[in-house]
Simulated scan of single mutants.
Amino acid sequence: MTDKNNGALNGIRVVECGQLIAGPFCGQLLGDMGAEVIKVEPPGAGDPMRKWGNGEHKVWWEVIGRNKRSVTANLRVAEGQDIARKLIASADIMIENFKPGTMEKWGMDPATLQAINPRLIIVRMSGYGQTGPYSSRAGFGGIGEAMGGWRAIVGDPDRAPSRMGVSIGDTLCATYGCMGALAALHAREASGRGQVIDAALYESVLQVMESLVPEYDVMGLVRERSGSILPGIAPSNVYPCSDGEFMIGANGDAIFARLAKAMGQPELAQDPLYATHVARGENQARLDELIANWTRTLTIDELEALMVEQSVPAGRVYRPADMLADPHFRARQAIVEIPHPEFGSVRMQAPVPKLSGNPSSIRRPAPRAPGIDNAEIYGELLGLSSAELERLSDAGAI
């Protein structure tokens, strides 16, 4: 963690009104790049993300809440809405991921907010977008993954669709929301005005579906679940070793020849069953079995050394312990250690991507309690007195 802020977004103020994953992850991305992020939480328990995660200690919050300050405002009451509008009046970007119509109900719709602050960029994230026949439906990341085409193609073909293992729908939507905000900041330089970014969960997933739709449109092809393989692209799979699993991607002709040499079977590269990309795809299962029979005789260390020696793209299937012990992770500072009042420190993923001139950074840990920065932000930024803050708190507005 550092006290310096040389980030590309230093000087940009973000008010994050979202909760759970999509909104807060968008705020995390902007904060990592140097933006000042003020998170608005409901009084009391705050963002439910504070209680999410696995195990006894809920440390997901330490990642998604980093680089943020916290204020509380009850957006369901008039005084809470009023103080939020005053805060947003000083912002460059406002983030929200409530059900469409909610911000309008609270008197915080784009027209109202931009009348107060014409330069305001509003990032709106929802399940189905702000328009269309499904816009009023409740939507979570998993639903967006299903509608966007992700779930149907993830998992083994003889089983039900699988979850990826992380909330990819939410984080994709947040990433596209962040991308839209950055584009809008650039456009504002010319126009002097902000705009609204409408990021839908299902459309964010759809965006990374490669040629899934045109394959069906042109040829009637429907992608199906294929487990660990990429159909027709071989060899590219996770293979068993005597002490674990190892990923090999050797589907190019020249690369496959190097793999065959490493296996002590260079003749495979000339075998009509495996000599070409098409042939290997047609004989994918047979080739995978042949490779697996060889990798089972080796340890992960032995196989990795052979793959490096022969310049074959390959790698370990990492768990957290592997990441923390790996010298490449350490050399690139891919994982950073953040001081923590309860745990001493917490190690987590560093900001990406790496900018040579304006490095992103983690400058403050996640706020310990909802509203911990009320006095500083409401007092110094909005000029509210301690007596007024106490009155607003007693009234349930903050």
Rank of each mutant, 00 (worst) to 15 (best):
P266T: 11
R296D: 10
I12G: 05
W60A: 11
R319L: 12
A160Y: 00
I197Y: 09
L381M: 14
I335M: 14
R368K: 12
T175E: 03
T276K: 05
D198K: 05
D326Y: 02
D32E: 15
N54I: 10
N374V: 12
P133Y: 02
A190V: 09
E267V: 03
D322P: 11
M164E: 04
Y176E: 08
E79V: 03
E376A: 15
R76Y: 10
A234D: 06
D170S: 09
N5W: 03
R119N: 13
N5S: 11
A292G: 06
A111W: 00
G180Q: 09
C178H: 12
L259V: 11
P100K: 07
G23T: 10
G46A: 07
A260M: 06
P110R: 07
V352H: 06
I229C: 04
I197W: 12
G194K: 09
A78M: 04
T297Y: 00
V14G: 05
I372Q: 14
R137H: 14
K99F: 01
A199Y: 02
I338K: 02
D288V: 00
Q333L: 04
E56H: 06
H277Q: 13
L87W: 09
N374M: 09
A183Q: 11
E376K: 13
D47P: 04
K354V: 15
S135H: 15
V14H: 07
G227D: 10
D82R: 14
C241T: 15
R151T: 15
R225M: 06
G220Y: 02
P359L: 13
Q284Y: 01
R286T: 13
V205D: 10
G165D: 09
R319T: 13
E56L: 11
H340G: 09
E145P: 02
T112N: 06
P231C: 09
I12F: 00
R364N: 05
G165W: 07
V37R: 01
S386N: 13
